[in-house]
């Protein structure tokens, strides 16, 4: 795990969520920068399958030992799948933010919303990492 990794193929929100666009479906999660800032994550409140997300609105909660943070949807759409593994292994968010630590899969409601997200370089700059 590296706190500076920002995979080039993903899109990012200013609220530190990432999106992987997979032909009309998007996988979303939180960045490893966000996971590091929160510390050891102990609980993720996942959305229900079928829930409708609105871009930049809160859709869940992530808790670490000493902090709580809302999860903000990087784009609108309907939740089609959630990462059940996080219910018993929330540490996956710390260990593999962009892989096994994914949070939900969403059917993309409005593809143009992706344009409002940051690319890897812009996100990298946002976090001010060296």
């Amino acid at each position: 795990m590296s706190s500076t990794s920002v995979p080039a193929e993903l899109r990012y929100s200013k609220e530190h969520e990432w999106v992987r666009d997979e032909d009309g479906r998007a996988t979303i999660g939180i960045t490893s920068y966000a996971a590091d800032e929160l510390g050891d994550i102990v609980f993720v409140e996942l959305p229900d399958v079928g829930a409708r997300l609105t871009q930049f609105a809160a859709f869940g909660v992530v808790e670490s030992v000493k902090a709580v943070s809302d999860l903000f949807a990087p784009l609108s759409g309907e939740v089609v799948e959630v990462n059940e593994a996080l219910r018993t292994q929330p540490e996956l968010l710390n260990q593999d933010s962009y892989g096994e630590g994914w949070i939900a899969r969403v059917s993309i409601g409005n593809p143009s919303e992706l344009d409002q997200l940051l690319d890897a370089d812009a996100y990298h700059e946002l976090t001010g990492q060296p």
């Binding site: 609980f43 670490s64 018993t88």
Partner: peptide, 8 residues
């Protein structure tokens, strides 16, 4: 291990 205590 407070994280472990809260996770499980």
């Amino acid at each position: 291990d407070e994280a472990g205590a809260a996770r499980r």
